[in-house]
Design a protein around this nucleic acid. Structure first.
Lengths: 314, 314
DNA sequence: GGACAAAGTGCTCATATGAGCAATTCGTTC
DNA sequence: GAACGAATTGCTCATATGAGCACTTTGTCC
């Protein structure tokens, strides 16, 4: 009777698991109690764990998924990856994880380049005081908001700098300019150029990405109209990274627009030793894939389902 | 900064737990990796388990709650207790647990006394072939169904006996008789008396209990009318055990009715070495309490929430 | 029925781990 | 600032545990 033998073993396994994990008896004791050798007890316990009869879970808002992180690192050649288990407040948990990562980053960065947006804001909130000592926080893309949400970009930088015992350097420029000449003029202007030079020297970058649709912060802030974005999408735009719209291959969708965008170039980001990319949420799966595949980041901080989406193809 | 120190420790604990349980690294390795001594790693792991950061669960239909079982044994002086975790099919899981218990019972009973009803039926179904060798299964209370469900009681006994390689002995009598004289006459009748004698000799009893309301099997089978039951409830009936209605103290509610009930007496059950009581479900919390408190059983097989209800009072 | 591969078993031994204890640090109270 | 008790730390040592291996059992194919 093979099936009943299997059932017997399974039942035995369950009893053993209970005695070991709930009653914390020793494998010897269990063996004596149930009439099996302690080696068999040990083997059945291993099986119980492998077969999922015994489930060990780490229940904590700051828990991570190290297994998936390893897969991401290996699959995409990343320097590091941080994956947070799915939950109802992923955005906040991912931001927390990014803040934790930044805090634990060694060597402590002397200059940190950051983008801006809702995600970065949230990371700033989750950072603890003293996360660094005397850090210079430089904006890496134009940050003056044209419409509402005044000062968001600058307060993010200020908060991160202040909590790291340092000071922010703001990029005094719009994100996107209307005319190419203006963009060139502003980029070479002493005050702006100096900031971009500091940005280029940063030891680490921390940035997020936007989705290419009318919900974009760039639309919200008045740099682009919903029609502009629709046009970009037609040309293959997946989303924006530090203000620059890219296609599925990670290249600027619209070279003209790209030239009118003020800030660190994508290639500078690609060349960076430590480029930390923070993404969360279903909507950003596509742009996340693009960023990771086109090697725009060396480190990713994300949620489990985004990570799964990245890993699932072919 | 006390709170931030606490937060740090907690975060460290989470990291340690991940490395230990998910990545199965050794405590040494973890210590080296995170810059703490291996003893601290060990201590934090213990804390993590105690504080519920690490949750170890045994996910299996036949899992049990040994901790609660121990409490039940101690609190009520039971010989044994079997508690199954709550789930959506408690009835079936509890029946399975009872079947498992019976199978593992040593010494293997030569004579088993059983009651009948939905619960017992289910236990019979869950028993495996060869659970005993040559067992005699005796009905301990009258079992002829008056209305529908013909033969239910006898098939239960037959199934248990057959699977145990033995034969059933049926009690050829109604559960409750209308007149006292008939009851006396039938109980002293050779065929019935012989069965009751065997029942009294049983090495173990297995029975369930009914709730005192119109859903009772005794109503269903036509022995009592819904009005009869309503009257009994008025007199304090909580439910029935082997066909006998008892009050909260475990005494017969209606001595007249009790005398007209054919089967093993409650005191015989109380005196038994091995009286296994199987109950499941919210509705039976009260009768379960009564049975346990009035020492009608020496072993209880039940679900977690029933057990919790038993344990919760003062 | 015999031969062979696969799975399972009992064991040795190196290693990982928890209990228990002395030394230290920390936080409080005077 | 001194004195005290409580918590925390690093450690020793006994014990629990898993890896690896020879041996046995089981199942399968000819």
């Amino acid at each position: 009777m093979p099936s009943s033998a299997t059932a017997d073993t399974e039942l035995l396994t369950v009893r053993i698991a209970e005695l070991y994990y709930d009653e914390n008896k020793t494998q010897d004791e269990i063996g004596a109690l149930l009439g099996v050798t302690r080696w068999k007890v040990g083997r059945l316990l291993t099986q119980a764990r492998e077969r999922g009869i015994v489930r060990i879970e780490i229940m904590h808002p700051r828990a991570r998924r190290l297994g998936i992180e390893r897969e991401l690192r290996e699959r995409f050649g990343l320097k590091d990856a941080v994956v947070v288990p799915d939950s109802d407040d992923i955005r906040s948990r991912v931001a927390q994880a990014a803040a934790d990562y930044l805090t634990a980053l060694r060597p402590v960065p002397r200059i940190l380049g950051i983008s801006w947006g809702r995600t970065l804001d949230s990371v700033a909130d989750h950072l603890g005081n003293g996360w660094a000592t005397g850090v210079t926080v430089v904006q890496i893309n134009g940050g003056v908001s044209l419409n509402r949400r005044p000062g968001t970009a600058s307060t993010t930088a200020a908060e991160i700098a202040q909590k790291g015992g340092g000071h922010p350097i703001l990029l005094p420029s719009p994100a996107i300019l209307e005319r190419l000449e203006t963009a060139r003029a502003i980029s070479t202007d002493r005050t702006v150029a100096a900031v971009l030079d500091r940005a280029a020297e940063a030891n680490a970058y921390l940035y997020s990405a936007g989705v290419a649709d009318s919900s974009s912060v760039l639309v919200d802030s008045g740099y682009l109209t919903p029609e502009d974005v629709a046009e970009l999408v037609r040309k293959g735009a997946v989303g924006d990274v530090v203000g620059r719209y890219i296609d599925a291959n990670g290249n600027p969708v619209d070279p003209g627009l790209d030239e009118r965008t003020v800030g660190l170039g994508l290639d500078q980001l690609r060349a960076a030793e430590t480029a930390i990319f923070v993404v969360a949420g279903e909507a950003k799966h596509d742009i996340a894939r693009t960023v990771v595949m086109s090697r725009l980041c060396s480190i990713i901080v994300t949620d489990e389902s985004t990570a799964a989406a990245l890993l699932e193809e072919q």
